[in-house]
C-alpha cells in the first residue's frame, strides 16, 4: 500500500512543482483586472524565472555556495512537505500533518536565513525584518494548524454544541490569517516590498539565485494554502481520495481569494504590522483554547 501511494503521488509532486508558477501568473492577471488594466500574460512568471536563469549571474558574495545549499534545501523540504500534506488529505493520519508542519518549518527557516548569510547590510536588515515576522507568524500557524488537525481528527463538528463551533471557527480563522501572512502578501510582503524598501531580502541576489529565491517563495505560498485546506476539507467532508480532489479543486479558488484580499488591503507599516499581528493571534488562540477547555470540563 505504501509503495503504491509513493508511485501514485510522485506525478502529483511534479504537478505541485509547476502549479505555483502558473497560479502566480493567474494572480497577476487577476490583480490587473481588479485595477482596470490589461496586465501581463498568465505565463509572465515563467518568462521571468526563465530569464533570470538565462542572464549572467553576478557572483560577488563569498557565501554563494551556502546560499545555493540553503535555497535548494528549502525547495526540497517544501516538496516533501507537500507530499505529507497530500498523504494527510488522503488518510487523515495526524502524524502526516505533523511531519508536513515540521518540514514546512525547515523550508521557512532555510528560506529566511538566506539573506542573513549574504555580506550585505541592506540584505541583513531585510532578513531580520523577515525573521521577526516569521517568529510571530510561524508559531501561530503551527499552533493553529495543530489544533485544527486535532479537531478534524476528532470530528468535532459532529457535535452540535455552539461553543465547539465557535472554537473551530476561531481556530480556522487564526489558521487562515496565519497562512495569508505566511504567503507574503500585502501588507506582509516584506520580502517583495522592494520598490519602497531598498533593504529587501533579495537585494543582493541576481540571476539563478534570484530565480531560486522567487520560486521558493511561490512554493511556500502553495504549501501554506494546502496546510489549511487539507484539515478544512477533512473536517467538513472527510479524508479520502475524493477529499484530496476537493482540496486540489479548492486550491485555485483559495489562491484567487488571497490575491483579491491582497489587492483590497493597503500597505501597513512594516515595523508595526508584526506586533499587531501577534496581539490578534494570542487573543484568537487563547479564546479558542479556553472554549475547548471549558467544554471538556463542563
Amino acid at each position: 500500500m505504501e509503495q503504491l501511494l509513493v508511485y501514485t503521488l510522485t506525478p502529483l509532486i511534479v504537478l505541485y512543482a509547476i502549479i505555483p508558477v502558473i497560479l502566480d501568473g493567474v494572480e497577476r492577471k487577476l490583480k490587473a483586472a481588479l485595477q482596470s488594466r490589461i496586465g501581463p500574460p498568465v505565463t509572465q512568471t515563467i518568462y521571468d524565472l526563465l530569464k533570470l536563469v538565462l542572464v549572467k549571474e553576478i557572483k560577488t558574495q563569498p557565501t554563494i555556495l551556502y546560499v545555493y545549499l540553503s535555497l535548494t534545501s528549502s525547495i526540497v523540504t517544501g516538496l516533501a512537505s507537500l507530499y505529507y500534506i497530500t498523504l494527510y488529505a488522503l488518510r487523515g493520519d495526524q502524524v502526516d500533518m505533523f511531519y508536513a508542519l515540521a518540514l514546512f518549518a525547515i523550508t521557512t527557516s532555510t528560506h529566511t536565513v538566506t539573506p542573513l548569510i549574504v555580506p550585505n547590510p541592506y540584505s541583513f536588515i531585510g532578513g531580520i525584518r523577515e525573521v521577526v515576522l516569521g517568529v510571530v507568524n510561524e508559531a501561530a500557524l503551527i499552533t493553529s494548524i495543530s489544533l485544527y488537525t486535532i479537531m478534524a481528527q476528532r470530528s468535532v463538528l459532529k457535535s452540535t454544541q455552539w461553543v465547539t463551533i465557535i472554537a473551530v471557527a476561531l481556530v480556522a480563522l487564526t489558521a487562515f490569517i496565519a497562512s495569508y501572512v505566511a504567503s507574503s502578501r500585502v501588507p506582509f510582503d516584506i520580502a517583495e516590498a522592494e520598490p519602497e524598501v531598498a533593504s529587501g531580502i533579495f537585494v543582493e541576489f541576481s540571476g539563478s539565485v534570484l530565480a531560486l529565491n522567487i520560486y521558493s517563495l511561490l512554493l511556500r505560498r502553495l504549501i501554506v494554502k494546502l496546510l489549511v485546506l487539507a484539515p478544512t476539507v477533512g473536517l467538513l467532508y472527510g479524508f479520502s481520495l475524493t477529499g484530496l480532489l476537493v482540496v486540489l479543486l479548492l486550491l485555485p479558488a483559495t489562491w484567487v481569494t488571497y490575491a483579491t484580499v491582497a489587492v483590497i488591503l493597503g500597505r501597513s507599516r512594516v515595523d508595526v504590522a508584526p506586533l499587531t499581528l501577534a496581539k490578534i493571534y494570542i487573543a484568537l488562540i487563547l479564546i479558542s483554547i479556553t472554549v475547548l477547555l471549558v467544554q471538556a470540563y463542563a
Binding site: R28, A32, Q35, S36, R37, I38, G39, P40, Q44, Y47, D48, K51, V55, I58, E194, P195, V197, A198, G200, F202, V203, E204, F205, S206, L210
Partner: peptide, 21 residues
C-alpha cells in the same frame, strides 16, 4: 501606473541593479 500599464509588456520596476535588465 495602471493607466499606461507597462506591466502588460513584461516590464517591472526593481529596486536593485542586480535584478535589472
Amino acid at each position: 501606473t495602471p493607466f499606461h500599464d507597462a506591466e502588460r509588456f513584461g516590464v517591472k520596476l526593481v529596486v536593485s541593479p542586480r535584478h535589472a535588465d
